[in-house]
Design a protein around this nucleic acid. Sequence first.
DNA 1: GCCAATTTTGAACGTTCGGTCAATTGAAAT
DNA 2: ATTTCAATTGACCGAACGTTCAAAATTGGC
Lengths: 220, 220
Amino acid sequence: MTVQDNPFRIRPPSGKARRGPPSVNAEEKILDAAEFVFGHFGLRGATTALIARKAGVAKAHLYYYFEDKEDLYCAILERAMKEWAHDIDSLDTTADLRTVLRDYIHRKVDFSRDHPALSRIYASEIIAGAPFIGDFIAKVSTPQLLDKMRMVDEWIAQGLIRPISPADLFFCIWAMTQAYADFASQMAIMKNRRQLEQPDYDAAKATIVQLVFGGVGLVG
Amino acid sequence: MTVQDNPFRIRPPSGKARRGPPSVNAEEKILDAAEFVFGHFGLRGATTALIARKAGVAKAHLYYYFEDKEDLYCAILERAMKEWAHDIDSLDTTADLRTVLRDYIHRKVDFSRDHPALSRIYASEIIAGAPFIGDFIAKVSTPQLLDKMRMVDEWIAQGLIRPISPADLFFCIWAMTQAYADFASQMAIMKNRRQLEQPDYDAAKATIVQLVFGGVGLVG
DNA sequence: GCCAATTTTGAACGTTCGGTCAATTGAAAT
DNA sequence: ATTTCAATTGACCGAACGTTCAAAATTGGC
């Protein structure tokens, strides 16, 4: 089972209108807890007991909303990909070239800062060979990349930027921005801090923008 | 137990001269198998049974050379850090500035291509918060980084390159080069290939060099 | 207050996995 | 040939884990 095999994963289990508890939905509590636990221990390292305890429900209750552990994991991935697309890839490409690039980089770094668990889950999934989101990447992410590559090729053809491999340009931007989520612990150690703070993310943005702008021949 | 707590991990179990099998050492077979399996499934996902089968020895035999699963994992990390330091961080810093930077980037990409399993293990370890190599990073890697940062500051002071945050410059170089190991599966999917080939790595090198050189104001 | 449907849980089950141990093998030393 | 000790193994154990299920609790409708 992969992410997009079951597009209606998020469901009120069945039938009539909701009659459940008046306060908050247990399903969201479970999803939040799962995001945290999966983000810290990975798919195989996370235990259903830990997720249930973090969510404040009985372990068996997970299986009321989700078929099994993998199903819950896929739900997290799906939510991650949606937030991803919503926060980031809805980019106004009609604006000034510099603005487009700078905003894109800033949004990616902000996402790394605000959703480190999601970034780690995504990275772990890719490192493992994308067993659950390979199809999603092939059918959703790849067309988005091809769009962006055409945009860059356009810029090159118009002489607005220096020639560069568009695919590798985006791979590098993703790598740098994502690193400030995945490798944050290493960076914090090396900077002799407990964790990265806002000035660190500001410096990250500035450096990445400087590298990209310089690499494609744009002045700051 | 962390990596450097036990500097004598690699050992002929004890005592006299080796009297064992004439052919190859079982310990290396186990290490190679463990590198492969840990690289594919992570610390918690890898099973001792799989490692033993891949190594062609009985499961119990793992515990003749290593205390437990974590000990074996640390041995892999230790070997990775050593190869790392040997292959990469032994860099002739007296050469021409462009040569130093370009060689450094090329070596990192080559390492990603030649040791993808080690790169993945290292990345997973960092993503998990560096529980086993945190001390190593703090006491060994950080001084090396500080050396490199001083070198960059020197270059800036001499007006050889544009001002830039030295720490973030190296973080970005690591991120980009490491991505061509960790995210290779994603890149392959997006390029509609089975796996990355030599031309892909050549393009990666060229793009990273272009970004770094452009970012610090060096001409290609 | 009672009923029906939904939501929640405690306890248990079968499996998997890390780790142990006594026993066996095999090569050198005598 | 016998001894000796490192090298190797199959069988086993206890704990942890994912999953199931029947029962209990909670909610809304009448």
